[in-house]
């Protein structure tokens, strides 16, 4: 695997997370935990006309879950509601561009799980 998982993109997002923080007066929010390791990601968002106008994340965790949430916010901001709704785990893994080992998939997807919970979207886990 040779440090694939820790290529620049993960370390970059880990060290300089995008959209980090919480939106005041958000339209929705949710927090998801990974009880195995204590990781916890909170997502807040606000909506514009038919789309997700802003999104931020907060939390603590490993580099994969924090970078994952950061990449998620970058990719999902500005998307239309039905695009968000149809955004699958695989879509996200593609946007992340880094091969994630099976044991760490849960970490990478924690932000997306929180977003879906915040927006009442069914978790299509696989």
């Amino acid at each position: 695997m040779s440090f694939d998982m820790y290529r620049e993109i993960i370390m970059d997002h880990y060290k300089n997370p995008r959209n980090f923080g919480a939106i005041k007066n958000a339209d929705g929010q949710a927090t998801k935990d990974n009880p195995l390791c204590g990781d916890s990601i909170q997502i807040t968002y606000s909506v514009g006309k038919e789309k997700l106008s802003d999104i931020k994340f907060n939390g603590t965790g490993c580099s994969i879950s924090l970078a994952g949430a950061s990449v998620l916010t970058e990719n999902i901001k500005g998307k239309k509601f039905d695009e968000v709704k149809n955004y699958t785990d695989e879509d996200f893994m593609k946007d992340l561009t880094v091969p994630i080992s099976p044991a760490r998939r849960k970490c990478a997807l924690l932000g997306l799980r929180a977003l879906r919970q915040a927006m009442d979207i069914e978790q299509h886990e696989n």
Partner: peptide, 12 residues
């Protein structure tokens, strides 16, 4: 450093 990151890096 999160222990999961430590374990992954050592695994590699």
């Amino acid at each position: 450093i999160h222990p999961h990151d430590l374990a992954s890096i050592l695994d590699e």
